[in-house]
Simulated assay, not measured.
Amino acid sequence: MASSRQQPQTNPKPTEDFIYTDLYNAICERHLPPETKLGEAMLAEHYGVSRTIIRQVLLRLSSDRLVKLEPRRGAFIARLTLEEARQIYEAWRLVEAAIIQDVTVSISPQEIAELHSLVAAERVACDEQNYPLLLRLSIQFHMQLADLCSNQFLGRFLKELIPQTSLAYFYEIHKMPICTKDEHREILECVIAGNAEAAVNAARQHLDGIEAALNARATLDRQISLADKLNAGILPQRKGHGDDF
């Protein structure tokens, strides 16, 4: 007679997509600063997966230009020079202007509601001084605008470009213009009103303000190793999530 005793359940290991998203968000939220070495063995142990999976994740992050792979040295968080950061913002302004003009004539009520919810979440994060979350939500606002663009090439280019700004450590997060007034809400309201020109101008002023905060003399805090970050719980060990992340 078979035993009716239940077998102990085991938590599934994190998927490659989950680990990729986890590290992607950690970079965008500036938990992992430029030049941080991403040791394969350490990450494999942390997530409880094989080094092969970690290697694939690092390769994907390298394709995003968020990680640099150096022969015989390993993987490191990439870094932007001040001039590279300025060039990215210049390209961002040009591409987003075309995206906003497209989105203004096609945005749906559901898409408006989703962007309103995102802007509201940004305000809460700012009021609570949760700057890592604010950074991620700020990026998400522009990424969602890119997703709404009917020109998939424009949208794809902007979505590849924006995350790289997380590598520019030349300004203090709490001085970002988004925390002084609801600039994303202003952009959205202009889009809703069907005024593409005003929306483009608001977006340009928003990016101008962020770029103006760039400071070549700013420096990183003391370099913290990946081990220190893991021990501090910056990348909490997650189990049992599967594909839900």
Rank of each mutant, 00 (worst) to 15 (best):
P8E: 14
K13F: 09
P14R: 02
T15Y: 06
I19Y: 04
Y24V: 02
N25D: 13
A26I: 02
A26T: 05
A26D: 05
I27G: 06
E29M: 14
R30T: 09
R30M: 08
P34R: 04
G39L: 02
E45R: 13
V49H: 07
V49Y: 04
V49P: 04
V49S: 07
V49D: 08
T52C: 06
I53T: 10
I54W: 01
R55G: 11
R55A: 13
V57H: 02
L58G: 00
L59T: 11
D64A: 03
F76T: 04
R79K: 15
L80I: 06
T81D: 13
L82F: 13
E84A: 15
E84C: 12
A85Q: 04
A85Y: 03
Q87M: 12
A91V: 12
W92F: 15
W92M: 10
W92Y: 15
R93S: 05
V95E: 05
E96A: 06
E96I: 03
E96C: 04
A97Q: 05
Q101L: 03
V103F: 03
V103G: 00
V105H: 10
S106K: 14
P109T: 09
Q110W: 01
A113E: 13
E114R: 14
L115T: 05
L115Q: 10
H116V: 13
L118V: 09
L118F: 11
V119F: 03
A120Y: 10
E122I: 08
R123F: 01
V124C: 06
A125N: 10
A125Y: 02
Q129V: 03
Q129H: 12
P132D: 11
R136D: 02
R136W: 07
I139E: 07
I139F: 04
I139C: 00
L145S: 06
L145I: 12
A146T: 05
A146S: 12
L148V: 08
Q152E: 08
Q152T: 08
F153P: 00
L154P: 03
P163W: 05
Q164N: 09
T165A: 03
Y171F: 13
E172F: 02
H174F: 14
K181Q: 13
D182M: 02
R185E: 10
I187S: 00
E189A: 04
C190H: 10
C190K: 11
C190I: 03
I192Q: 00
I192Y: 00
N195M: 03
E197I: 00
E197H: 00
A198H: 01
A199V: 06
N201G: 01
A203W: 01
R204L: 07
H206Y: 13
E211T: 11
L214S: 01
L214N: 05
L220V: 09
D221A: 14
Q223S: 14
S225I: 14
A227N: 09
A227T: 10
A227Q: 14
D228E: 15
N231L: 13
N231P: 02
I234G: 01
G240N: 07
G242D: 06
D244V: 12
